[in-house]
Simulated scan of single mutants.
Amino acid sequence: MRNLTEDQAFEAMVLFLEQFYERTKSDDVAVLLGQLIILEGGGTADPAVWHDWIECLHQVLNKE
């Protein structure tokens, strides 16, 4: 498997959540997906979400 950029990994996570939502119709997942929308000018609908995403990436990458 090849390495993903931050943006590609984020896109993969969103796709996973969208598919999960389609199966479950979970209101909580729907709210989260609304916060994850990438705006035209860049950034997410909820700016804190991107920061949280980067923090999680760092935790995973530094886990050794």
Score class of each variant (00 low, 15 high):
G41Q: 13
W50E: 07
Y21F: 15
E40F: 06
L33T: 02
C56L: 10
D28T: 01
G41C: 06
V29M: 10
W53N: 00
V60E: 07
H51Y: 10
A48D: 13
A48I: 01
G41N: 14
V60A: 07
E64G: 15
L15A: 15
V31W: 11
W53S: 02
R23D: 08
G42K: 08
L32T: 00
V49W: 14
I54G: 05
P47I: 11
P47F: 14
E22P: 01
V31Q: 14
G43E: 13
V31D: 09
D46G: 00
G41F: 09
G42W: 11
A45C: 05
L32P: 00
V29T: 15
S26W: 10
A30Y: 12
V29P: 05
V49F: 15
Y21V: 00
T24L: 06
H51L: 07
L39Q: 10
A45V: 02
Y21L: 01
Q35Y: 11
G41M: 09
E55H: 00
G42L: 08
R23S: 07
T24W: 04
V60S: 03
G41K: 12
F20T: 11
S26I: 04
W53V: 00
D52M: 07
D52F: 07
L39A: 03
H51K: 14
G42T: 06
N62S: 13
T24G: 00
K25P: 02
S26Y: 06
L32H: 02
V29N: 04
Q59Y: 04
W53F: 15
G41I: 10
I38L: 12
A48N: 08
V31H: 11
D46A: 09
A30D: 12
V29Q: 03
G41W: 10
R23L: 11
F16E: 04
D28E: 12
F16D: 05
V49Q: 13
T44G: 06
F20V: 09
I54H: 06
L39F: 01
L33E: 11
L17E: 01
L61D: 09
N62F: 09
G34C: 04
Q19L: 12
L57H: 03
K63R: 15
V14P: 03
N62Y: 07
G34T: 00
L32Q: 04
V29S: 03
A30E: 13
G42A: 05
K25S: 10
